[in-house]
């Protein structure tokens, strides 16, 4: 979906996120007992690591990017996949695992596999059935609703 991203911008974003993470960790870490040199407390490691990360991410901000070529980010198919997993995770415990899987498979077979809707649906339901056979019946995993 996002095309022609400047690699420099991407790298800067990641470095900035890492810097923010470092700041957050240090901030949260100071709320915990730091302890002493002889007996470090729970805040000791997070703060120490946060400081290292802050230094590294500042250095990354000023580093030359690896690539020059513009990058493409998040292909439509990738976004649809992410959405499908998210929806499956949402439905998983609400409507039971196997129906959620049938929806998940049908949707992705249709969207990614470019199957006709009826064959995607049939394969999705069959796939969910096989899933049941393998994971619930044979492996006896505990899935919501089964």
């Amino acid at each position: 979906m996002l095309k022609n991203i400047n690699p420099r911008a991407g790298e800067l974003c990641i470095a900035a996120v890492l810097l923010a993470l470092a700041g957050f960790v240090i901030f949260e870490g100071t709320k915990m007992p730091i302890g002493t040199w002889a007996l470090p407390g729970p805040g000791y490691f997070p703060i120490a690591l946060g400081i290292i990360l802050a230094v590294v991410s500042v250095a990354l901000l000023f580093r030359r990017p690896d690539g020059e070529q513009p990058v493409e980010l998040f292909h439509t198919d990738g976004l649809m996949t992410i959405a499908a997993v998210a929806i499956a995770a949402l439905l998983f415990e609400r409507i039971g695992a196997i129906p959620a899987f049938a929806i998940f498979l049908s949707a992705l077979f249709y969207l990614l596999g470019r199957a006709r809707w009826w064959s995607a649906l049939a394969m999705g339901i069959a796939g969910a059935g096989l899933t049941w056979l393998l994971f619930v019946y044979l492996l006896q995993l505990q899935l919501p609703g089964y």
Binding site: M80, I87, I103, S106, A107, Y110, L111, R114, W117
Partner: peptide
């Protein structure tokens, strides 16, 4: 179009 149809079906 495929996305729209899939969402409606869901």
């Amino acid at each position: 179009m495929r996305l729209v149809i899939a969402c409606a079906a869901l």
